[in-house]
Simulated assay, not measured.
Amino acid sequence: MNINPFAVEEWMNAYETGALYNIAETCVDSISLDELFSLSGTDKESFLSRLCSRRLTYGAIEGSPELKNGIASLYRTIKPDEIVPTHGAAGANHHVFYSLINPGDTVISIMPSYQQLYSIPASLGARVKIMHLKKENGYLPDIDELKRLAEGGVKMICLNNPNNPAGALIPQEILEKAAAIAQSCHAYLLVDEVYRHLTQDEEWQPSIVDLYEKGISTSSMSKVFSLAGIRLGWIATHDKEALKQMWSHRDYNLISCGMIDDAIASLALSAKEKILERNKKIIRENLAILDDWIQKEPHISYVKPHAGTTALVYYDFPVDSYTLCRQMYETCGAFVTPGDCFNEPHSMRIGYAADKDTLIKGLHAMSTFFRSLEAGKAGSSRPSEA
């Protein structure tokens, strides 16, 4: 299988561990098991004693009842038997394409978005049509353009809601119109919902599976629940034929997600209100900090995110984004993601859901770097952490 290099993940792999101020991270500030026990009101010794006494088998092959009931509670109409556990949302997206897309199928995807949504179907031999989201339209799908792209038939339409990297939130009205287009073609509508629930207000964010029978939702415990370390995600859909194919293909590459990951995810889902309360507080306070910083910086601009953990920030310096982000990393320790990873030149993706101190120090370091660019003397020495 030939596939394009995964630009954003290759960038993260190369630089993340050495970052002084990591504001490229897309998870809400990660929690430890101790913090999870505290948030959930769980007795640590009792939980660990039960876990340590279990024999390390494959566990529940299709996911434990506790896990699947917890995932189902995040939707309005999904039942536990309509959920396929996977290795993270990355595993979920890959598994959907691996199970349902064949050479010659037509797939419509968006850009900017997570690269899996267009590079994987292309690698499987699908004909991929790209719908470019526009800054002036708030990075929302253009329904008229989607309708034109779907003319002649389509096997699957792919969206990302909330959007990574721009933080746009597709309203229910647009989702329903996209579903109507998919329905007219008997197409699947895959929506990567890995940031779902991380909104800037308390309004319920609908899932595509609660709006369309052939809708497919992918998500995980990583972003919303701050538990990327357990590598547990899922696929949810009402479509019986899709479920049949995904369960069949799962036997070839997954077997199970691991009983320890399952147990930790189940505990977190049982305390979802507490975790969501914590994480919404973080993203709302931190977005206000980011927004205030952007208003004061003369060389940058953005469309303020409505949801998620990331913002796509544009700059007017005469340098490509890989060069700018690498120089900034090397001279001041601030780590962000080049916009060219998303085919958005002269921009960068900032992850604003880190701990508040890291965000503030990282933005301050960026300002210092921008002043050096203004003066034409970007340095080469890297500061030590304050």
Rank of each mutant, 00 (worst) to 15 (best):
residue 9 E to G: 03
residue 11 W to L: 01
residue 11 W to V: 00
residue 14 A to M: 07
residue 16 E to D: 01
residue 17 T to H: 00
residue 17 T to D: 00
residue 19 A to F: 00
residue 20 L to A: 00
residue 21 Y to A: 01
residue 23 I to Y: 05
residue 23 I to Q: 08
residue 24 A to E: 00
residue 24 A to Q: 00
residue 26 T to C: 03
residue 28 V to K: 04
residue 32 S to V: 02
residue 35 E to S: 04
residue 39 L to T: 03
residue 39 L to H: 05
residue 43 D to K: 08
residue 46 S to M: 10
residue 51 L to D: 10
residue 52 C to G: 09
residue 52 C to A: 14
residue 55 R to A: 14
residue 62 E to M: 06
residue 69 N to Y: 05
residue 72 A to N: 06
residue 73 S to Q: 01
residue 78 I to A: 04
residue 81 D to H: 07
residue 82 E to A: 09
residue 87 H to V: 13
residue 89 A to Q: 13
residue 90 A to H: 14
residue 90 A to Q: 13
residue 91 G to F: 09
residue 93 N to P: 04
residue 95 H to L: 14
residue 102 N to H: 11
residue 102 N to R: 14
residue 113 S to N: 15
residue 113 S to F: 10
residue 115 Q to K: 12
residue 119 S to M: 14
residue 125 G to Y: 13
residue 126 A to N: 11
residue 131 M to R: 02
residue 131 M to K: 04
residue 134 K to H: 08
residue 138 G to P: 01
residue 157 I to P: 02
residue 160 N to F: 06
residue 163 N to G: 15
residue 166 A to N: 12
residue 166 A to M: 04
residue 173 E to A: 15
residue 177 K to F: 03
residue 179 A to G: 12
residue 179 A to Y: 08
residue 180 A to K: 15
residue 182 A to G: 11
residue 183 Q to T: 05
residue 185 C to V: 10
residue 185 C to R: 15
residue 187 A to G: 10
residue 188 Y to K: 07
residue 191 V to H: 03
residue 191 V to G: 03
residue 192 D to H: 09
residue 204 W to G: 08
residue 206 P to G: 07
residue 208 I to S: 05
residue 213 E to M: 12
residue 214 K to N: 10
residue 216 I to D: 05
residue 218 T to P: 06
residue 222 S to V: 09
residue 228 A to G: 04
residue 228 A to H: 01
residue 229 G to M: 10
residue 229 G to R: 05
residue 240 K to W: 02
residue 242 A to G: 09
residue 242 A to H: 09
residue 243 L to V: 10
residue 246 M to F: 04
residue 247 W to C: 03
residue 251 D to E: 12
residue 258 G to N: 04
residue 258 G to W: 03
residue 266 S to Q: 09
residue 270 S to R: 14
residue 271 A to R: 05
residue 271 A to D: 06
residue 274 K to Q: 15
residue 280 K to C: 14
residue 280 K to M: 12
residue 282 I to P: 03
residue 282 I to F: 05
residue 283 I to Q: 07
residue 284 R to E: 11
residue 288 A to M: 10
residue 292 D to P: 06
residue 294 I to L: 02
residue 297 E to C: 11
residue 299 H to I: 03
residue 299 H to D: 08
residue 300 I to V: 15
residue 302 Y to L: 15
residue 306 H to W: 08
residue 310 T to H: 03
residue 311 A to H: 03
residue 313 V to H: 06
residue 315 Y to I: 08
residue 318 P to I: 03
residue 322 Y to G: 07
residue 325 C to F: 09
residue 336 V to Y: 00
residue 336 V to K: 01
residue 343 N to T: 06
residue 345 P to W: 01
residue 350 I to G: 04
residue 351 G to N: 02
residue 353 A to L: 02
residue 364 H to P: 00
residue 368 T to G: 14
residue 370 F to R: 12
residue 375 A to D: 13
residue 375 A to H: 07
residue 385 E to K: 06
residue 386 A to I: 14
